[in-house]
Design a binder for these strands. Structure first.
Ligand SMILES: [Zn+2]
Ligand SMILES: [Zn+2]
Ligand SMILES: [Zn+2]
Ligand SMILES: [Zn+2]
Lengths: 121, 121
DNA sequence: AGCACAAATGAAAATGATTTTCATTTTCGT
DNA sequence: ACGAAAATGAAAATCATTTTCATTTGTGCT
């Protein structure tokens, strides 16, 4: 655990969710830290290898990261105004796990989001 | 539906699964077709917009594509090799509907994807 | 402290997929 | 056939990420 990794973990804690390498780098600089983008990438890769950080891809292919410990949850998003509600996902978790086991997949994760028009809109 | 899109659809039919833009381009050239890489990308983007083709991302961020059946379904995707299985989603459908109703949302849709490491990898 | 060697750092260059530009070609309606 | 609009693709641009490599920092030993 070197200095860069500690800095990256601390900014991930502050963020409390997903962020890209470039966002994290900017946040660190703005927070007064001195760190190169290369080191941010290296630290993130190492933390992912050590399973301290989760990595996944946005639709545009950019990688986003979050601390593994962050509470896992899902959103109900309004297609019109963008307001979001955190929703309970135990049924979904069971489904994802069952589907993965049924096909022999390991190291399982999932993404799920529900869209609609909220009552206000 | 222009010539490029037709060529891309036909090669996707031949492939019968996921392939990257570059792979599809190579396959088309080897098959004797004359088409530029730019047109392959353009055709794929257009087909994705029209929901004729599914696009997703491998772990390394590269986009892979395949023809999409009309029926609504979900995927179990291997994070490592990109192989996918179509999975049964009735439990998920119920969950999404219940969550939306609980919060008074209308015109509900959802996105869900399960990922892991397949038995082969 | 002084020295040697390994690890860490980051600027700059390289990589590679994807997108954009733009000049040329093809298609289509009149 | 003529002109406008769409399609095409080569080359350049973009952009996240990785690699290189020279420099700095940390660590153990004398
Ligand atoms: Zn709304
Ligand atoms: Zn979940
Ligand atoms: Zn696999
Ligand atoms: Zn569904």
């Amino acid at each position: 655990m070197n200095k860069s990794e500690i800095k990256v973990i601390s900014v991930l804690e502050r963020v409390g969710g997903f962020a890209s390498a470039q966002q994290l780098h900017q946040l660190l600089l703005r927070g007064g830290e001195s760190i190169g983008l290369t080191s941010v990438y290296r630290a993130l890769q190492s933390l992912v290898d050590d399973k301290i950080v989760d990595q996944l891809r946005k639709d545009d292919g950019e990688a986003i990261y979050r601390l593994c410990g962050e509470a896992h949850h899902h959103h109900l998003v309004c297609k019109s105004c963008g307001s979001t509600v955190e929703i309970e996902g135990s049924a979904l978790e069971k489904w994802a796990k069952a589907m993965a086991e049924e096909h022999g997949y390991r190291e399982v994760g999932h993404l799920a989001e529900v869209f609609g028009i909220c009552p206000k809109c």
